[in-house]
């Protein structure tokens, strides 16, 4: 029973790391970025190439995956995304889906369409018993890393100058500009960090989700569910939603395997019908 809970939390945490970047772009910047999964995939493949081809240690590959996805994100933001901030959501959808198609084809071309896994060091494989609860070492790692990320994000947003600038820029762009905040750079940096986190999530999640060129489309639905159920007005919303979905999904499959496929979607529909702004939205103004 507790093992199921543990697995669910790990799965949810993983969804959160990948999706929190999306929560930022969608919620704070009001940009429908369906290509978010593509950055996660790039990060994952980056780690894959480093570890499996060049023999870089797994832990060293994680920050590189983060930087790699963040740099590409920054580049894409400055050259392409910046033209779409004031466009309609539909045009953003068209543009980002186009990006997904392109990255999928490029990855397929260079790395092949087979599934890829990152070689894990032996000490991360297997699991141990902790007061009768079976704990997978790798899943424990995921939970630790994600918890760390959550804390750091909260601190940055709440207590740093950059955080307050970002919040100001989101609340009212014009006034923020008037106060001398370089809104463009604030957005660009935020976007890059979001992509970097997705890349890190992709690298971490490769073991459980597996990498393939259609990764962005295959998991896009899950990321969107996390963001829409969690609401887009804070970081904690998507976080709680991820955990809830992770546990709901895993428990649903354990206790009612025949109907496991429905559980996550049904939760989503019910939540959204009852609370259209998401489960953890503060008020309904924005």
């Amino acid at each position: 029973m507790l093992t199921i809970l543990f697995d669910g939390i790990a799965y949810g945490m993983l969804l959160f790391v990948i999706a929190c970047g999306l929560a930022v772009t969608l919620g704070l910047m009001n940009f429908v970025n369906l290509a978010h999964g593509a950055f996660a995939m790039l990060g994952g493949y980056c780690a894959y190439v480093l570890v499996n081809v060049y023999g870089v240690p797994f832990f060293a590959s994680l920050p590189v995956a983060f930087m790699f996805a963040a740099m590409i994100g920054l580049l894409a933001e400055r050259t392409l995304y910046v033209h779409f901030y004031n466009r309609s959501h539909l045009e953003q959808v068209l543009f980002t889906i186009g990006l997904v198609f392109m990255t999928s084809a490029v990855v397929d071309y260079f790395l092949g369409s087979q599934q890829r896994f990152i070689n894990l060091p032996a000490y991360l494989q297997g699991r141990f018993d902790f007061f009768g609860v079976g704990i997978g070492k790798y899943r424990l790692l995921i939970i630790l890393v994600c918890a760390l990320i959550l804390i750091v994000l909260q601190l940055i947003l709440g207590y740093t100058r950059f955080g307050s600038r970002l919040r100001a820029a989101v609340d009212d762009q014009r006034i923020a500009r008037g106060l001398g905040i370089n809104v463009n750079w604030v957005f660009a940096l935020t976007f890059a960090v979001g992509c970097g986190l997705a890349g890190l999530g992709g690298a971490l999640g490769a073991e459980i989700l597996s990498l393939e060129p259609h990764f962005p489309l295959k998991f896009m639905i899950y990321f969107l569910i996390v963001v829409s159920v969690g609401g887009t007005s804070s970081i904690t919303g998507p976080f709680l939603a991820s955990i809830l979905l992770g546990i709901g999904d895993v428990a649903g499959k354990y206790y009612a395997p025949r109907y496991g496929g429905f559980v996550i979607y049904t939760i989503m529909i019910v939540v959204l019908v009852l609370r259209p702004q998401g489960l953890f939205a503060r008020g309904t103004s924005k």
């Binding site: 093992t3 199921i4 697995d7 499959k253 354990y254 395997p257 496991g260 496929g261």
Partner: peptide
């Protein structure tokens, strides 16, 4: 039976 759209086998293996 595992759903097609299923990225995680953990709960089934636990059974």
């Amino acid at each position: 039976r595992v759903p097609i759209q299923n990225p995680d086998f953990a709960p089934f293996l636990q059974r």
